[in-house]
Design a protein around this nucleic acid. Structure first.
Lengths: 129, 129
DNA sequence: TTAGCCCGGACACGCCCGTGTCAAGTAAAT
DNA sequence: ATTTACTTGACACGGGCGTGTCCGGGCTAA
């Protein structure tokens, strides 16, 4: 069995994680090793490489496992990705060279323009209970 | 002043957030309203709309503000985005129709193939202290 | 001027994240 | 057969997230 895949302890020492964390990473859905018939986790070279790069990723950008988990969700759930992208697309990216006061006036003007009786009042709030 | 932009309390009631949360959302870097000369937050229609869609986003997908914050980081930091994408690209997306045992053998074979003396041993771990 | 908003800062509190450790049961190695 | 390693499950605990609340001080409108 020492042939092709490493056991969790060996994988831990070879990647710098702890065995506990390897299970935790698996719970997070990030790296799910194969199992032996008896249920032992078997880490192949691909998993080991991914574990190392994951470590580097977390360290280099100071992010958490949950962040990568969310990125994975973003990566897989097209609806979520679309919704988030759409939200960012609505960002009021005011140009830096416009003084805040002027931009406020422009915002106010836009508000007036938006007060079209055929549209809902943008100030209204309906509780989505 | 009741003309074009709403004060924090009004914005809160009109969007369903609390004033406290509006400040928190601002701290998270997600929605940063303009300020009056005296420092009062001024929420325009764009901010209000974004606040509402943000609420819907969090509720619909059961995600947190930090998740959206991370998505924003992903959205802005090209290096981070590239690193994360690269990590996902290395995912061992084994096809579902291949039995685990066979796939393990394939992995082992790949491991053997990778044991090229010109490459680093994929099992090696160097502490990046 | 006085009542009512706003500001930043802080304390509090419950819940989740990351991590170690321990326990009871099963598999592997010697 | 015994020791070692793996499994799941749990308790613990420091830190951050999400949120309310209260404070002391500045702004604003009646």
């Amino acid at each position: 069995m020492t042939a092709g895949a490493l056991t969790i302890q060996q994988a831990a020492q070879t990647t710098g994680w702890s065995a506990r964390m390897l299970r935790y990473v698996e719970d997070a859905g990030l790296i799910e090793p194969l199992r032996s018939p008896a249920g032992y986790r078997l880490y192949g070279p691909a998993e080991l490489q991914r574990l190392r790069t994951l470590r580097a990723l977390l360290a280099e950008f100071d992010i958490g496992l949950t962040d990568v988990g969310f990125a994975q969700r973003l990566h897989r759930d097209a609806d979520l990705r679309a919704a988030v992208d759409h939200w960012f697309a609505a960002a009021p990216r005011r140009p830096e060279h416009v003084p805040a006061a002027d931009w406020l006036r422009w915002e106010q003007d836009k508000h007036q323009r938006l007060l079209n009786p055929t549209l809902l009042d943008p100030y209204a709030f309906k509780e989505t209970a």
